[in-house]
Amino acid sequence: MVKSGTLILHTAARILMPLQLLFSVFLLLRGHDEPGGGFIAGLVAAGAFTLYLFAFGVSATRDVLRMVDPRDLIGMGLLLGMISVFPAWFVDQPFLTAQWWEVPGIDFKASTPLIFDIGVYLAVLGSVLAMVMTLMEVDKDEP
């Protein structure tokens, strides 16, 4: 399954993956206003990496991911989710109450829901990727 390297798949994967990743970030950021959001964006990004996995195998994908292990992504995602719980505490509101901050200069609003959504994005991406990669690794070990 892993070795199914055709020219079309290779080329498609190489070109499509960055586009898909870019698209996933776009989906993530616009998610609060238009269809999209952390879950969908995380799945799109996971799809991008999965395509690459099928085209080039696990070790090549690990090279693309560089230092980041998908398991670390899970942890980072959960951590961001937890971090967004606390800011409300400092202004004497119940936990998880959304906080909004204007970023001066550009027309962009930072907020705890955005942090939270990024956390969801990373957790979904990390979880799906970790599952698929582990399965493929094991697959390779046992022909």
């Binding site: 879950f39 799945l43 979904v124 799906v128 599952m131």
Partner: peptide, 13 residues
Amino acid sequence: VLTAIVIAFGVLA
């Protein structure tokens, strides 16, 4: 349902 779909996938895996 949106979260349920994703979780169903996790549980299925």
